[in-house]
Simulated assay, not measured.
Amino acid sequence: MSSVGKNQNIQKWNDWKGNMTDQQYVQMVHDNKLSRKVIAEACGFSKSALRQNPTIAKELAELENDLRNRLILPPLTPKGEDESRTPKAIQKESMKAAREQSRVPELEQRILELEAENKALKGKLGRFSELSDVFMDMEELR
């Protein structure tokens, strides 16, 4: 995004923040923090601007800390404090599990198809095995 767009977003953020009351903040609490979706909609920009614009991200963190100090937001739990200090990493195991889970219905369908094909081939084999036995008996008679 251009610096003009970033500056516009900062201006929208400051306007929104200046017009908010404590009661309005209370109404937008989600998971012990302010709802990013509601903030973005109220400001008129995307949620990514709250993370990607360093000025807005810093001010949002400061705002939430201030609201916690004023007891408008609930205090962070020890787990929440740890998560706020460390960046969230995408866990390879969870991504792998999601990919595998999305393949489950496809694989189940494939198994059903192969079982049906296997049953049909066994039926044909039964007929031909009798024929094979007859040919073997005929060979012995010669």
Rank of each mutant, 00 (worst) to 15 (best):
Q101Y: 14
E59G: 00
M20E: 02
D31K: 13
A98D: 10
R142L: 04
L125I: 13
T21V: 04
G80N: 05
A120W: 02
S48D: 10
Q27T: 07
M136F: 10
L73S: 07
M20A: 03
I10V: 14
E81A: 07
E41G: 01
D31G: 01
R110M: 15
M20D: 02
L76T: 05
S48C: 02
M28C: 03
L107P: 00
V38E: 10
Q52C: 09
M95E: 14
L67W: 08
F45G: 02
S3W: 09
T55D: 09
D31N: 14
A61T: 13
P75W: 01
A97T: 06
K79C: 01
F135K: 04
P78Q: 07
G123R: 07
L67H: 05
V26Q: 14
D15V: 10
I39T: 00
A49M: 15
D22Q: 10
Q101L: 11
R99S: 04
S48G: 05
N19Q: 15
M20C: 12
S2N: 13
R99G: 00
E106C: 00
P105H: 05
W16E: 02
V38N: 01
A89E: 11
R85T: 05
N53C: 06
T86G: 00
N9Y: 07
L67G: 06
L67Q: 06
S84N: 09
A57M: 02
V38T: 14
D22V: 11
E108A: 07
R85N: 14
K124C: 00
M138I: 14
G123D: 14
N14M: 09
K119V: 03
I56C: 06
T21P: 03
A57L: 03
S132D: 08
